[in-house]
């Protein structure tokens, strides 16, 4: 099969040669794919604008020997303008793209749940119906859960004792009871743990009603939890604008 068709979200673009780009996509059926888009940096390119980061597109790709080649692109949803027009959304969205890329380590290994999560996350971010920081944290917690690193915000992550528990331990994978508490465990506000649980389950009524102090604490814990599991920090996370 030298030609294949798939839908995907553009995660990253890199310049190649005079006018080409290497496009990294998270596709529905083929997982993470890297493909060359020829001539897209020229202003007369017929699909340059359709291969910008955040774009959800229907693509026809030629499977090459080393890198695939993008042949045709039709836009399904272009979130670029809505996201780049708001700096907070842009920095949050970029961190979402980088996370999706990092959590799909193997090329061409299907990651349907990760793909659907990213499509939904970007749509929510572009609509602007919730604060960008909350959308990002919700996406990070859920994509870690899809990747097998679901945090527990109720029962003890170590012994399973029914919660709620006041201590949070990043290495243990969430809240821990008093007997499982390790040296590095922190004691966040109960509202922060409630917010984190709401972000993981998508309870937006609770998340939107949270106050700035608990959002700050929740984003700090989410970042620490993400970096622990990804082992290497995300470049874009330190540049996320939190308001």
């Amino acid at each position: 099969m030298s030609l294949y068709r798939d839908e995907g979200v553009v995660l990253r673009t890199q310049k190649l040669g005079e006018a080409d780009r290497i496009i990294t996509l998270l596709t529905r059926a083929n997982g993470r794919v890297r493909a060359v888009a020829k001539g897209v940096r020229r202003t007369k390119s017929k699909f340059g604008a359709r291969l910008e980061p955040f774009t959800h597109a229907d693509l026809q790709i030629y499977a090459g020997r080393s890198l695939d080649v993008v042949q045709q692109v039709e836009t399904i949803a272009s979130h670029g303008d809505a996201i780049a027009g708001d700096y907070g959304r842009y920095t949050a969205g970029t961190a979402m793209l980088e996370t999706a890329e990092r959590l799909t380590a193997e090329e061409k290994e299907p990651a349907v749940q990760q793909f659907l999560l990213l499509v939904g996350g970007l749509r929510t971010l572009a609509e602007g119906s919730h604060p960008p920081g909350l959308v990002l944290d919700s996406f990070l917690l859920r994509s870690l859960a899809v990747g097998g690193y679901a945090a527990s915000f109720d029962d003890c992550a170590r012994c399973g004792r029914v919660g709620p528990h006041p201590f949070f331990s990043v290495p243990a994978g969430g809240v821990v009871c008093a007997s499982c508490r390790s040296a590095g465990a922190v004691t966040p506000a109960p509202e922060t743990l409630g917010l984190l649980a709401a972000l993981l389950t998508g309870d937006w009524a609770v998340a939107d009603a949270s106050d700035a102090r608990h959002r700050r604490e929740a984003s700090g814990l989410t970042s620490a939890y993400l970096q622990w599991h990804l082992e290497r920090g995300l470049r874009s996370l330190r540049l996320v604008e939190r308001t």
Binding site: Y90, T91, T94, A95, L97, E98, R235, S236, L239
Partner: peptide, 8 residues
């Protein structure tokens, strides 16, 4: 500005 490249 390209956060994914670490450029702020």
């Amino acid at each position: 500005i390209s956060p994914i490249e670490g450029i702020g």
